[in-house]
């Protein structure tokens, strides 16, 4: 029997619930940790970043307006679909990160568990960080967390799935929408996650995933006046780039989650900081005794 011809994949971007090619028409080769060819990925340009922000902005109303309970259900469904793609994620993590198979399995398990963990927070975060405030007067007031809007996320460069989940899930669990740039050299788990999102119940535009270099898209996203917050995790260890991005983000007072000096170990317990980083507190006054 003749040897079967390899089906080499050429992936596209994920913007507004669709999979468009890069406006630039460019793509680049993704290799495994040993330099062997894995697939072609789309090389996003500044205009793809612009389109992604438009799609994310369009999705804010519906996603932030959904009940927290519903958002939790939708996110839990994503974890279910990820579980179905478990083997594919393991292959991609093992090849991209150059780790042993057993290690890759545990990383994928941890990533899915983390997604479930964040999904659970959807309808609990308001109880924990919100409050009802007795004040010195014949009335009462409430503080409730609200999403900040469109968040640009630079996904970690090294941890291609666990790190990715750890930065993406906390953005959308609070009702924000995301424009995410995947790890430049290890984008395959992010691309597979986009296929997961497209086949689960997450509305189009809530998560938009760009592949390519940070140099092409990160400065555009950081300076974009219609982006409300930016997570610089993907610029970890590159202080020069990180400070340039922070400077660009200052123009419209974006919330900035700063880049760490080195990429952290994502295995550690995450805490709520990444959720609350993208929430605004709204306090409303409420008359009592009427």
């Amino acid at each position: 029997m003749a040897e079967r011809l390899a089906v080499k994949k050429t992936y596209k971007l994920y913007v507004g619930g669709k999979f468009p090619r890069s406006e630039s028409g460019r793509s680049y080769e993704v290799t495994d940790a040993k330099g062997r060819f894995l697939a072609n990925a789309a090389w996003a340009s500044r205009k793809d970043a612009r389109d992604a922000v438009v799609a994310a902005r369009k999705a804010v109303g519906g996603w932030s307006g959904a009940t927290a309970y519903n958002r939790g259900q939708v996110l839990y469904r994503v974890a279910e679909v990820m579980e179905g793609r478990h083997a594919q994620f393991v292959d991609e993590v093992a090849a991209g990160e150059g780790v042993a198979r057993a290690k890759a399995v545990s990383l994928v398990d941890e990533a899915i568990d983390r997604w479930v963990w964040y999904a659970g927070w959807a309808d609990k975060i308001a109880q924990v960080v919100g409050s009802s405030n007795p004040v010195a007067g014949p009335y009462f007031d409430f503080s409730v967390p609200e999403p900040t809007g469109v968040v640009a996320v630079l996904a970690p460069q090294r941890s291609s799935l666990l790190g990715l989940v750890s930065v993406l899930a906390p953005v959308i669990v609070g009702g924000n929408t995301a424009v995410l740039t995947a790890s430049a050299e290890r984008p395959l788990p992010a691309i597979t996650l986009s296929e997961v999102l497209a086949t689960s119940d997450v509305p189009g535009g809530v998560v938009n995933i760009l592949t390519g270099t940070l140099a092409d898209t990160a400065p555009i996203l950081a300076a974009h006046m219609d982006v409300n917050a930016v997570d610089l995790a993907g610029a970890a260890g590159d202080a020069e780039r990180a400070s340039a991005l922070e400077l660009a983000a200052a123009d419209n007072l974006k919330r900035v989650v700063r880049a760490p000096e080195a990429e952290p170990d994502w295995i550690a317990e995450p805490g709520l900081e990444r959720i609350t980083a993208y929430l605004e507190t709204k306090t409303v006054w409420h008359p009592v005794g009427v």
Binding site: R50, V53, I220, A223, H224, M225, D226, V227, A248, D251, N252
Partner: peptide, 9 residues
């Protein structure tokens, strides 16, 4: 300005 504008402004 070189940066994309937003409708908020």
């Amino acid at each position: 300005t070189g940066r994309y504008a937003g409708p908020d402004y």
